[in-house]
Each structure stands twice: as structure tokens, then as C-alpha cells.
Design a protein around this nucleic acid. Structure first.
Lengths: 262, 262
DNA sequence: AAGTGGTCTAGACCACTCT
DNA sequence: GAGTGGTCTAGACCACTTT
């Protein structure tokens, strides 16, 4: 099989490193659509032959593209242009009561609405003392107790998000918040049944590279950052009633927020 | 100079690759604070000696840490633990009118308030036809005309954000939106003077690895993702009056939003 | 001049995938 | 079995920083 791609030759006059030139050529091919999503990049052997350089030079070039999130290597198969998963768009009204009253948790309702198959797995529940960061947000001390619910969300079997909720033990005790199935409407419905009317959420958004454990849990390709969200739920009297710590694959989400101009 | 760090030996029984084990050891040292921000990681030569492996193996390990955003290499000096810049916290009311009426643009006011020295540079202004994405958001066609303002924001000389605003030419023409200094209160003040009362903004947030041009413009360290924001401003009658496309260094920002529960 | 990381070569053996 | 990427060795020369 001959090189299917029209890759330029090296510019020996340039002082740009050879592996960078190779990376540039491949990146251009991807940007111009000569290599589309899922297409196979020429093999290391083909690229060595084409450019007449050592294997490590080619591997350095491919490493650049991978760390830019443009390609994925599959052992024994080849290097492929990354295909981006369907994107979930989270609107700023996603926690509005009208979405909660259907009796389904937000994630389930949204995903089914978009035609995907939602799954929730590895639900772990515990009661323990909060970290300083969580305690502060909940207006507690690290000697108080909180109910912790950790779970992972998947769409069509593909993990997209892990979330850990913290609810003051006083609110959660004796409710289905402490059970694997938190019941219709999810934990927000349970909190309201305890007499707290939800008023607003404050969501803090960070972006960073994943920890190794996060990359594993979300099956992230190399070069994909994560959103790290910490959302605090407040009742109408200003009491914080829940903190939710969420890590999401950044290429599965677009977050949308409405800001007041008033 | 003897190894100042207490790095474990390789586990020859493990089937984990040697360079990954080395990366794990260094990562642990950073996580545990044995290596703090700005500290020098042992040199390649020292690590080769300590582990008794080839240089490429050590370099592979260091490459892992770098792509995780944990370290930066400085040619001729060494590899250092990344120090994180001061973080700017953007609140969801940052475009509220009360912040605009001071006569200063949002960025300037905020930065001075936090004790930093704000700068804005490379202001470029043009009038041209919008891309399909911009046209759609502004309710225009690609045959219409828009005013384009591109600029870069710096704090204490460190670039943190690039922004490009698009305003329908009908609104911008003949105003200071087309001049380098857009005047007191910034372009939102100019838009309101044209008779459009600002009502709300919708901000879409994505996270991804930077393009090469973005990494250059923001002087990003390897392994640092960016926030990509597209904000659309709407007047009280629902007319979109501006789109602002922003790329921000992710480790300089925490975004904060308020969501309604009603 | 000595020490550091940046680039590159030319091999080797292995594990995985496909046919 | 042939082709692919994953790991590793053992060198070489270069460019940059520090002393």
C-alpha cells in the first residue's frame, strides 16, 4: 500500500526540529480534513520510510499529536484520528423544578430525552466527616457528619461523568438518600421532603488534566482535559443543603449558563 | 550532591513499565509535598544513576509528568514542579449593571480590585462578514457585516485571556466600538447608548487542549488546557447584540455561576 | 568548563491485532 | 505470520544556563 497522503518533505533549511515538522504536517492534514475522524494515520514504518528518519523521531512527532488530543494510538492496530463523542449540552435551567417534578433524576431524564441510554453504576454510600473544603461549603465543621453518595454516569455504556454528593447527615438520615436507589426525583426531591425548599445552586467550574484515577474511571483518551465542577445547593433560607463534586470528560460536554445583565 | 529525595527502587516483579514506575515515584513525591512548587526535580543524569536505566526511559517518565501539567522543563536549567499562578474567580454577576456603571470595563475593574495590574494589548479592529457560527448567534447571515474587536488581557504582564467580540455593524458603526479605546464602560456601554438595553448573557463553556497559536499567545505551559467561552449578549427585546469568543488559560481561572432552582 | 535538557540515530525484543 | 505500536538500550551531538 502506497502512502495515501500527500505529506510534504522536510525543510532542511528550517531550524524547526524534524519531529515538530512531521507533527505539523500531520496536524495540517487533520485540520484540512485530508485525515478525518477515525482515519488511520500512516504507520510508524511508513512515516520512517517517507521522511527517512529514525523511529524515535516519528514517535516523538506522534506523541505531540496525542498530547494535543488529536489522535489515539491503539496497540497492534495503528494510530487514529480521534473521533469526538456526541456532546451533551447542559443548560443553566437543568435543575429547575419543572425538570425535577417528572419523578426522574436530571441525568436520566436528559439523556433519554436526547435518545441515549443512561446508566448509573458503582454507587457507594457512606456517612463520614467532611473534608475542610466540603465542611466550609456546607457551613459545618470537620467534626460534623455528612452522607456521601458517589456514583458514575454512563451514556450507551460510555462513562462521561463521576459525581459525589455530600448532604448533612441531619438531613439525610432515615431518608432514601442513604439507599442505593434514592427514589423518584432523586436526592433533591428527598431534601425538599425534609422541609428545605431549594432556591438556587452555585456552580464553580475548573478545567484541568485528569488524575490517573479519573482517566481510568472515565476511560479518557490521552490529551483530554476534564471539567471539575463543585455545585452547592441552597435552600430558600440560605442554608446550604448539598454539595456535589463532579468530574466530567471535557469532550462530552458543553456547559451553558445564563448571566444577568441587570 | 547526593539525591535529596527518598525515591523508592524499581519493582522488578511489577509488570508496570519502568518509565511509568519512575513517573509514579516522582508524582507521589509531588503529591506528598516532598517536591513543592518551583522545586527542581532530580536531573536526568541523577535519575539514570539512581534507577540504573537508559536516558530515554527517564525522559519518557518526565514526559508523562509534563503532559499531566505537573512539571515544566527549562532548557539548560532543569525540570521544575509547576507553580500555579494566582487564580481569578469570575462570578456570575460580573456583567451586572452595577459593575458597569463605574465607567470601567469589567476586566480592568476586577483586576484592580484584586490588587493586580491589568493590561490590554494587541487590539485589532475590523469590519467583515461573520463566520456561520457567529452569524447564527447574532441572527445574521454570512453576507451581513460585523465589527470585530480582538484583544489580549494580561495581569502583571502575564497573559491570561484572549477575547474577540463581534457586534452587528449596524450597531457599531460610528461609535467608539470601532476605535482602539472604546470609551468609559467599554463596548457594552456603547451598545446601550445605541438604544439597546442589555438584558442577559448566555455563556457556553468548553474545555480542551490549546491550539499552538493559543499556547503561544497565552504563554501556556505544556499540559495546561484552556477554557473556550462563547458569550452572547441579548437586549431586552431578545435581539442578540454581541458575541464574545474568549480563550482563557484554565489554571488562571475558576468560573462561578448561579443556577436557578425555581 | 560543567551541567542541564533537546534532538536524533540504530538497533533490540515484546505484546497486541488482524487475517 | 505479518504488521502494528510499546518499551528499552547505548550511544551521539547540540543549545542553553550557570559558575
Amino acid at each position: 500500500m502506497v502512502e495515501p497522503l500527500n505529506l510534504p518533505d522536510l525543510d532542511s533549511a528550517s531550524d524547526r526540529a524534524v519531529f515538530r515538522q512531521v507533527a505539523d504536517h500531520l496536524r495540517d492534514a487533520i485540520d484540512r480534513g485530508q485525515l478525518g475522524q477515525g482515519d488511520k494515520v500512516p504507520s510508524e514504518a511508513q512515516l520512517m520510510q517517507h521522511y527517512g528518519v529514525a523511529r524515535m523521531t516519528i514517535r516523538n512527532a506522534l506523541q505531540v499529536l496525542q498530547s494535543e488530543g488529536l489522535t489515539v494510538a491503539e496497540h497492534g492496530r495503528g494510530v487514529f484520528v480521534r473521533s469526538h463523542p456526541p456532546v451533551r449540552r447542559l443548560a443553566s435551567d437543568r435543575f429547575a423544578r419543572r425538570h425535577r417534578d417528572q419523578g426522574k433524576a436530571a441525568f436520566i431524564a436528559e439523556t433519554e430525552g436526547a435518545g441515549g441510554k443512561p446508566t448509573v453504576d458503582s454507587i457507594e454510600i457512606a456517612e463520614l466527616s467532611p473534608s475542610p473544603a466540603i465542611a466550609e461549603r456546607l457551613g459545618l465543621t470537620t467534626d460534623d457528619r455528612v452522607a456521601v453518595r458517589a456514583r458514575r454516569y454512563l451514556i450507551n455504556g460510555q462513562p462521561v461523568e463521576t459525581a459525589t454528593s455530600y448532604v448533612p447527615a441531619e438531613i439525610a438520615r432515615g431518608t432514601r438518600i442513604m439507599e442505593p436507589d434514592s427514589g423518584p426525583g432523586g436526592i433533591y426531591a428527598r431534601i425538599e421532603e425534609q422541609g428545605y425548599r431549594l432556591d438556587r445552586f452555585v456552580e464553580e467550574v475548573k478545567s484541568r488534566m485528569p488524575l490517573r484515577s479519573e482517566a481510568r474511571a472515565l476511560k479518557l483518551a490521552p490529551g483530554v482535559p476534564v471539567f471539575h465542577l463543585v455545585r452547592t445547593a441552597y435552600a430558600t433560607d440560605g442554608t446550604p443543603v448539598e454539595v456535589c463534586d463532579t468530574v466530567m470528560s471535557s469532550d462530552a460536554y458543553v456547559l451553558s449558563y445564563e448571566l444577568p445583565a441587570r
